[in-house]
Structure formats: C-alpha cells, structure tokens
Amino acid sequence: MIEDFLQGDLSDVEEAVRKAAAAEIMPRFRQLAADEVVEKSGPHDLVTVADRLAEEHLTAALIGLLPGSVVVGEEAVHADPAVYSAVTGDAPVWIVDPVDGTRQFVRGEDGFCTLVALAHRGELLASWTYAPARDQLAVAVRGGGARLDGVPLHTGSPAPDAVLRVATSHPDYTTDAQKRALLGLVTPGISPRPCGAAGLEYLAVARGELDAVAFSWEAAWDHAAGLLLVTEAGGAHLTLDGVPFRIGGGNALPFTVARSTATAERVLGALRS
C-alpha cells in the first residue's frame, strides 16, 4: 500500500499542505489577538490558534489521502503524549508540525514553515517543507532526491579549510551537559549562531547556504522533514555517538545534520571536545 502511494502522484499532499496554510495560517499572520497565543512549557514554547487548526486540517486531509495511515502532530502529542509511539508503529505515519517557528510567526516575521513527513516503521519516505509567507515549497522523496519549487537541491561541500556556519539549539532547550557539548562549537574554524525555525535551517543546509545544524532535542515533528530533505540533497546526519539520528528517539545528543559526511564528522568532533 505505502509503495503504491509513493509511486503515485504526490501532488495531492502538496495541495493539502498549501490549503491548510491558506485556510488556517496565513489569514492569522500578523493578525493574532492576544488570547490566540498560549504558552505551553514556557515563554519560548508557544502555541497559537493557527497551530491547532492547521494541524486539525492536515490530519483530516492526510488520512484521507492514505487510508490506514495515522498522524503524529505536535499539538496532538502535547494533548496526549501516548500518540508519539505511532512514529515507529506498523501503520504509515504522517509527522506534522503545523507551524514550525511559532515564535517568529507570533512576532510577525516570515521565518516559519509547515512541516510534513511520511514514515513507516521508523524509516523516512517523503517530506514537505512549506514556507507560506515566502511561497517556498521543498519536497524530498526517499531515493528520488530533493527539490525546492521544482528545482533540484544539492548540498555541496564546504572547502576543507572553510569556517563552518552552524545553527545551534537555543540555550533554553538544552541540559547542562548539552550546553557543554555545544560550547565545543565555539572554536576556531566554526561560526555558531542560534537557530531559527528548524525546518528552514534544514532547508538552508540542503541549499548549501548553511554548513550544518547542531540540535539537542529529538521531537520528530521538528526534524523528520528536514532530515530527509538534507540527505536526499546529499548531506548526512550523526548523533553524538557517531550513528545516524533515529526519528523514534533514544539518540545520543546533541546531533548534527550537515552538507556532507566529512562536515558532520568535523562538527561531531567539536561537540565531543
């Protein structure tokens, strides 16, 4: 069933993502009322009415496109953490972040996106990264490459002696041990900066505009779409213990996703230092 779906016309998924953004996100962009923004775990962890309604819209649409599939969305998991186990379950799973970069969205900035990935038994199969305020859509299919607005993406490789540009986790989302590891990036040859919306940082890596990311949290909705996008564009990912990142969790953190294996290993060496 899943194989037949992937070999078919995936433009229906693209249309579903665009429609959800057009119906529930963009009408509220720079139009949010104070009571439409709520803190979850703290002031850096926000949810808006757009997040909730876009996820509901996508959940109905995506299950309709692939009967028998399930959805793991950020807001659904916040309401019921048990939903997360479906990421590695037997049913095909849509992994959804309706508004990645909610803080940017709330501030009226255009650096936010909608992330959708399709996985089965922990294996990423396809992904969609849509930045509606910029009208950019990146799509990746396992074994089929990655494209931005229809144009193939290639990460390329930084020069061996280049200063690496690396986006890193916000300090508010790191443990003391992870902070120490990330401090390893403050070293000659690496130029770290705080990350924006994770999905757009992954897109920057896939485009060769950013050399790597180094993140300290595992939430599949933040990473699944970008992981496939970067790897299909030619990049690589490694966790602190030197193995690829697993969307089901249990990873040694921080982890890095980079333009090439050599770049990932270079960032990993700094994290271990």
Rank of each mutant, 00 (worst) to 15 (best):
F215M: 13
T261I: 10
G150Q: 00
S169F: 03
P132F: 06
Y130Q: 08
P81H: 07
E15I: 14
L115W: 03
A33W: 03
L227Y: 02
R52F: 07
Y130E: 08
W217V: 04
L6P: 05
F245V: 14
T88S: 13
L268Y: 12
L253C: 06
L203G: 04
V93N: 04
A119D: 03
D149R: 06
D135I: 02
A258H: 08
Y84G: 12
R207K: 14
A50V: 14
A258I: 12
T168E: 05
F112P: 01
R193F: 13
G150L: 08
R107T: 13
D45S: 15
V77S: 10
I2F: 09
T48I: 03
R259I: 05
V38A: 15
S69H: 10
V163A: 14
A86R: 14
L238N: 01
E265W: 00
G234N: 04
E24T: 09
D80R: 13
E109K: 13
K179C: 10
D176M: 13
F112R: 04
A167W: 06
P98D: 09
S260I: 05
D12M: 15
H223P: 01
A270Y: 05
V17C: 09
T261K: 14
A34T: 15
A61S: 14
R18W: 07
R28S: 12
A220I: 03
W94R: 08
W217G: 08
V213K: 05
V230F: 04
V213S: 06
P43I: 12
T88E: 15
A16D: 05
A22Q: 14
G235T: 08
R180F: 03
P171W: 02
Y130C: 02
G199C: 00
D97N: 10
G143F: 03
V257F: 00
L58K: 07
G144W: 03
A146E: 09
L227G: 01
G144L: 00
D172V: 13
V70G: 10
A236Q: 02
A181Q: 13
A224Q: 01
T129G: 00
R272Q: 12
L227A: 10
I2A: 10
D35H: 12
G189L: 03
G143H: 01
V213L: 11
D90L: 13
T261C: 04
L137N: 07
S127L: 03
V47S: 12
A91W: 11
L228D: 06
F215W: 15
A264R: 09
L271K: 07
L53M: 14
A224R: 02
R107Q: 15
D97Y: 09
L210F: 00
V139P: 02
R30C: 10
T239V: 01
L137G: 10
P160K: 02
T261M: 12
E123V: 15
